[in-house]
Design a protein around this nucleic acid. Structure first.
Lengths: 140, 140
DNA sequence: CCGTTTTCCGAGTAATACGATAGGTTTTAT
DNA sequence: ATAAAACCTATCGTATTACTCGGAAAACGG
């Protein structure tokens, strides 16, 4: 039940961009430095977020990345789904078929569905704006 | 955010034992057959559950495994923790230190703590008895 | 006592994903 | 022109997963 660094780094980077929202393109170099992430690895991750439409990039000197939407409209769940795929503790929740149980009904499946729902509920209720607010609160 | 088969098989096997609670030792062969799990692999998993004190074993012919406690007192969370270690989406929740953030405070960490709490809440609220009851409901 | 059933134990192994690293190309502000 | 930055593809070591294999030890039934 571990999150990979893809998810963690993705959220950290997006949080960093949210903190600098409205300040023009932010270079990955600075994000990687502040968040303590390998710059080259982060490049790959940002590619996914760009293709998913959550960030846009400006190439060339003084270029970088910016959020395409207001931080209030992007949730942690959005980012996790891009970085890690569908939120589901087991695959049979995605594919639908539960091959293990011959009777066609899987008792334990109900448990995993409840877990999925509770994770989804938490992640979708936290926006990038919420995260930046927490940061301000802490600094005060 | 995937559960490994260790967790899934562990819960499936314990659920199977709960269905046969009070009927003497149940052989792994029969559990593996009913649940569609490799018998030899399941052996390894049961070793962990035995060491953790949730099942006891009887060796020799007509031997097998039995729950050490009433199904109502064993939760899915108990099993998952044995099979997969502490429930935590990221390691820094276990170790305590969050090396990434230099200022010593990790904003995203709060998110992962909330996720952990919601997962824990769900898993600890479902007992093996609950699962067997669902099974009966379905059969009716 | 013997043979079968079962748990128990340790080693090995193919496949996969993770977390990078490397080396280059394009694009663009200055 | 130069430097900064995004972009792209490939490679690679490490670890984990989900097994398999081969046996040893225990216990029951006859």
């Amino acid at each position: 039940m571990k999150l990979s660094t893809k998810g963690r780094y993705g959220v950290a980077a997006m949080y960093d961009l949210a903190l600098h929202y409205g300040q023009g393109p932010i270079s990955l170099k600075s994000v990687a430095l502040r968040q303590g992430i390998s710059e080259h690895y982060l490049e790959q991750l940002m590619g996914s977020l760009r293709k998913a439409g959550f960030v846009k990039s400006v190439r060339g000197a003084q270029g970088g990345y910016t959020l395409t939407r207001d931080p209030a409209t992007i949730t942690v769940g959005d980012i996790i789904r891009v970085m890690e795929g569908p939120i589901a503790p087991v695959d049979c929740l995605i594919t639908g078929g539960c091959e293990r149980d011959r009777s066609g009904f899987c008792v334990t499946r109900g448990v995993w569905a409840k877990v999925r729902d509770s994770i989804t509920q938490v992640l979708d209720s936290i926006s990038l704006l919420d995260l930046s607010r927490e940061d301000i609160q802490h600094k005060e």
